[in-house]
Nucleic acid binder design. Sequence first.
DNA 1: TTGAAAGCGCTAACAT
DNA 2: ATGTTAGCGCTTTCAA
Lengths: 371, 371
Amino acid sequence: MAIKKRPRQPKSENRRLDIRDVAKHAKVSIATVSRTINRVPTVDKELADRVWLAISELNYFPNTQARALVSGRTRLLGLLISEITNPFFPELIRGFEDIAVENGYEILIGSTNYHPERMSLAVRRMIERNVEGVAVMTFGVEQPLLEELASRHVPMVFVDSGPPGDLVRPLLVDYRKGIQQGVQHLAVLGHRKLGYISGPSQQRSSQLRTAAFLESLEQIGVTPNPEWIFEGDHTLEGGMRCMEQLLALPELPTAIMCSNDMTAIGGLRVLTRAGLRVPEDISLIGFDDIHLAEFVNPPLTTVRMSRNDLARSAFGALRAIAEQEQGGHPREWKVTTSLVVRQSTGYPRDSALAPAAGTPSTKKKKSSKKV
Amino acid sequence: MAIKKRPRQPKSENRRLDIRDVAKHAKVSIATVSRTINRVPTVDKELADRVWLAISELNYFPNTQARALVSGRTRLLGLLISEITNPFFPELIRGFEDIAVENGYEILIGSTNYHPERMSLAVRRMIERNVEGVAVMTFGVEQPLLEELASRHVPMVFVDSGPPGDLVRPLLVDYRKGIQQGVQHLAVLGHRKLGYISGPSQQRSSQLRTAAFLESLEQIGVTPNPEWIFEGDHTLEGGMRCMEQLLALPELPTAIMCSNDMTAIGGLRVLTRAGLRVPEDISLIGFDDIHLAEFVNPPLTTVRMSRNDLARSAFGALRAIAEQEQGGHPREWKVTTSLVVRQSTGYPRDSALAPAAGTPSTKKKKSSKKV
DNA sequence: TTGAAAGCGCTAACAT
DNA sequence: ATGTTAGCGCTTTCAA
């Protein structure tokens, strides 16, 4: 597009400046220009100065394509996401763009829009453009696509976990801390009877969450009641099913933590249908902070992971893989969590703390309700 | 990164497949492979078949860098935005990604984050990567940067308008239609006394809006009352100032349209402080549908432009410039608008239509009411 | 219609 | 420390 390229001959008038122009202008060889630009330390100070001067006088920018072609390094990273209009992603992209650009990388965004075709197109685009690594920030990417990348030795990072491999790293979300934040929030409100709906027990990340829950209970000096612990499957339906079983119990907990938001939202639905009020009768807390969490009624208190951490960890991990991380065992890339207090948590029903019923007022945009 | 490149000799084991591998496999010359891939029509059908077969058997992807280097076409487009976490942009990006990818382009996103430095970094990145065009989707990009692009013959499109030039196109937002939608919405509710707060009269886009307002009034058979028409400046403060003046008038309009949302939000603030209720006492309607519009109290009814239109127009315009748009005068790229009915508009105070006062119930998010 | 070969702008080996 | 030069993988001329 840029400019109509005439055949080859007439050295078109507005051709881009190239390294030879700079060399000529600075009266050095093109090799010296290249070395200067790449900060090879052996270049004579004076020559280097001449080169830099020429560069700025001519306003020369090196041609990335040519550099990439010869060096094999594109300084391009792929970011595979599900849908950019899902508010989780813009924040993530922002962090990723920031750190990538700081380090001289560009990012190629591939949205799958939940379509298998778009997904494979995205992977294809990344391979064609020779990305130096891919951050897979969405679930459900088909195995063959990942193999395609792996077979071409493209480093990958996954949120949470992915197929293991030499060039593959999981990002470690700090579930322990996240769950702890949730449990302590409930403890502070005065809850001692806590229930839990887990994710599928085969999934590593949900095992971690369950373990963290139990551990957090211990920290607040509460003995878990096995009756109140259910195994869900991280779906809305799973959450509903578990909540129904729970409601059949003779004694109910005053608060329930769920292994993810979808589970909590399913649970919420059942609670509401059963005529129980959240949080007046029972408090509910999720995990993930998906978009929907803010829009259910009442808005869900939940634990979210830092998009910025995620972005920086993904970048760092990709870079470390690529540069072979000479020193010792692979580093772990942690992602921190934070509690997002909305309106699905409040004092327990019979608590002395409760002004009457409902959520206590808190500062800022945290849950707040005049009773 | 991708893979540790050993010096040059040992033809590293896991080098990428290249066109020669395909040529060998298909028993043709690399020229034929190239022609086949580029769908040059003169290739013999049978040879072409062999080539395609080889390509798919080897799972070959052409190297974009090499192609770009020799052809001078990167198939890369720059998208200059202010901030990706502003919800205006993800939608825009989505549309842009869709159409770009459909056409074999990639997009390079540059966020300015309202920092002059980031802005020039973004422009620099685009030039370095040799983008074939830039869609400038944010205001306030500094002139020198645009000149930098122009001097390198990079085609540009601007939302609404930008510095004119041979390789520059404005996108034309259909203000007339947008304003009309707003005015008719008010007319349907029963408003006949309409006020207007314009933008700065030097700015072309606000002239267009004002003209459209007057025209729309005529269409609904209302004679404009010059007393109720104020010139704002598209800022919050301007909106407040105008609204204060308006409130000093002996007779007030029942509804006010503003040239943009910030103006309306400023106006809303003054109205609220003056103890007037919106929309019970006075209806208010903005233009743009900025993020904030949804979160003010009451949420602002406004006119928004289609992000998808914007994206597609930007892409189309860029492409047309680049391909020199052989046929006649440059095409116009229109962007449509739509009315977003929220809660700042309702029946006029003394309307027989009003059930009591306040907003009529609406179905969906569109205006529509049973009278 | 096909193939051989000349570059695209740059980096890095090699020579000096 | 600097210059010369051979490619990187491809497209496109040119000759056959």
